[in-house]
Amino acid sequence: MRVLAAMSGGVDSAVAAARAKDAGHDVTGVHLALSRNPQSYRTGARGCCSIEDSNDARRAADVIGIPFYVWDMSEEFHEEVVEDFIAEYAAGRTPNPCLRCNEKIKFAAVLDRALALGFDAVVTGHYARLETASDGTVEMHRAVDHAKDQSYVLGVLTADQIAHSMFPLGTDTKDEVRREAERRGLQVAHKPDSHDICFVADGDTPGWLHDKLGTRPGVVVDEGGEVLREHEGSFAFTIGQRRGLRLGRPAADGRPRFVLDIEPVSGTVTVGPREHLAVDGLMGIRPLWCGAPPDGELSCTVQLRAHGDEHRASVRLDGDRLHVDLHDPADGIAPGQAVVVYDGTRVVGSATISATRRVAGAVPVR
């Protein structure tokens, strides 16, 4: 097959490209230039979209012996990921830009362009497995190494996208991949993993959002409505946050307080004890299915954040809304996050959380 290897400049994508070539495929490497000003994105160990990453990807392609190109996807990335990130925080939600990038850039814009150019599939260094079911459909499953499993951020893929994808690393550990990269002579063998948000150059997300959104004054209140402090923007807070609240005085019972709710119109941020974060139900919108959608109620597990715990659940689809009842309550779940549904190790699909239901029948959180 003719395959396009998306090469980020890290060790995983380099080894994935090398394995695709070893398997006999006609491989071409491509690095995605995602920033209109690459110096504004992270560099070094914390980056994934920098100029040095592009150079690392090029050197890896040379060692592997495959053609290499850089595709400018900066406009698409800014519109679909960065602008969405800003709008979601302004609306009081907590988005995951990596899921959005996978959905709109790596497995939509890139795959569409690849297929139009005559490629059969896109290969990436994500840790997930693809298996062919008895009916011939391609299913996505968790990676063998659950510590590195990235199926959560791939839960936005459709069945057609999965059918044109390759994930060669799904049966390996990170240490095994690094040792293989070293044997292959790849300079990125021991390059640190990227972390956090690539387009927030200094890692200060609240400060970055303040620069984009300006000052939007509001107050932090307790559950009784008492004003504890003023703030300059509710976008600086997330559901479940404990650190950085700067409340000035402790709660009456001396226990720490957490963000329970964010009301972006008034700018009111409500805080309270940790146990009031517990939710036992979710509503999801914009569902995406990696195969056939559930028919009736599905007993399953769900994951609510990257590298988070699995929760036993029952889900049912009602039109374009996904209802999730959690058998194991979860803490600190915010609208805007993704709920990814699993049947065993198989990824069923995902939805964007629009509301949560607190334990003991409290009013749903926005």
Rank of each mutant, 00 (worst) to 15 (best):
V219F: 00
R246W: 12
D202T: 14
D196S: 15
F237N: 03
G254Y: 07
Q241L: 03
F235W: 07
V220I: 06
D222L: 04
R183C: 04
H231V: 07
F237W: 10
E182M: 06
P192Y: 10
G218C: 06
G185C: 06
D193I: 05
D202L: 07
H231Y: 10
D253H: 01
P217A: 11
G185D: 11
I239G: 02
R178Q: 03
D253A: 04
K191W: 13
A251S: 15
E180G: 06
V200G: 08
L228P: 04
T205S: 02
V219S: 01
A201W: 09
V227Y: 00
E230L: 02
H210R: 12
K191V: 04
L186R: 02
L247S: 13
R249M: 09
V221E: 00
P250V: 10
P217F: 10
K212Y: 00
L245T: 02
A181L: 11
D193S: 15
I239D: 13
A251P: 00
E182K: 15
E223Y: 05
A201P: 03
H210C: 03
R242G: 13
D211Y: 03
C198K: 01
G240N: 07
I197T: 15
Q187A: 15
E230T: 11
E180T: 13
P192I: 05
G218N: 04
H190C: 08
A201G: 13
G224M: 04
L209N: 05
E182P: 02
V220G: 00
R242W: 11
R249V: 12
G244M: 10
G244P: 10
K191A: 07
I239W: 02
P206L: 12
I239C: 07
R184S: 07
G185W: 04
V200K: 03
Q241R: 01
S234W: 05
G218D: 01
R183Y: 07
V220F: 02
G203R: 13
H190V: 08
V200I: 15
A252Y: 00
I197L: 14
G218Y: 01
H190E: 14
D211W: 04
